[in-house]
Design a protein around this nucleic acid. Structure first.
Lengths: 125, 125
DNA sequence: CAGCATCCGTCAGGATACTG
DNA sequence: CAGTATCCTGACGGATGCTG
């Protein structure tokens, strides 16, 4: 087993924290949700509309996971009709920075990637 | 549609570069592969053993995708037995930095996340 | 409004066996 | 050695309908 010792922890261990976060980041709506909440708390429907095309079930799953991880809080107001507000915790807010690092990289190198893809596809198929 | 204008590009667009990279990062072996290649070129079997439990088919998929995106190169030596060497391109190498940012965040906040999870699970189930 | 319940399709990922 | 060829499974994501 090769180790990657410039990273603490064993990325190869399925229980590795980095793997956990990578999995979160990898799923379809988590990052988008965090980004949407960046400018302030939002209600369920606002998130739903903000994201575009999410089934409520899926959004709920995403939100529950984020809540469980301590990245957002869920506040229920005992009103009729009910109102539920989701807010980034400081922990959740702090995630924006590494996300942005990835995003910046993506923006910066998108052209190169696209070019590489075109060349690859042209070369063989 | 809410926009997240502190990020260039529309993260909500499925064709968004950030989404593309996020998807790559999200899949199971891409990041590990890049990290393994950090210290120099490796052969197929070395990667296979380094990762631990990957079906050859899956590793091939991962490598092909990385090659197509221009993050690694694939060199075939016409020998018997065949030898194939994978190497990070400068582009691929540059991805290590944002990955590390995420990893560092994960390490730094792992304890907080685990605590949050335990509390959440204890509160309800 | 904010979801839960239910059913369903897809596809990444995996196990296994075989080959240039 | 470095894959390819097959077959298979499960979890994620989605569509729809209903309810406190």
């Amino acid at each position: 087993m090769v180790t990657v010792d410039f990273l603490q922890g064993d990325v190869f261990d399925p229980a590795c924290p980095t793997r956990l976060i990578l999995d979160r980041i990898g799923d379809k709506w988590t990052v988008l949700t965090v980004l949407l909440l960046r400018d302030g708390p939002l209600r369920f429907t606002q998130l739903r509309e903000g994201i575009g095309k999410v089934a409520p079930k899926v959004l709920t799953q995403t939100l529950r996971r984020l809540e469980r991880d301590g990245l957002i809080t869920r506040e229920v107001f005992a009103e009729v009709p009910p109102r539920v507000v989701y807010t980034l915790t400081p922990l959740g807010r702090s995630l924006i920075e590494p996300i942005t690092a990835v995003s910046d990289w993506a923006e910066a190198h998108m052209a190169a990637i696209t070019t590489a893809q075109r060349e690859y596809d042209a070369a063989a198929g």
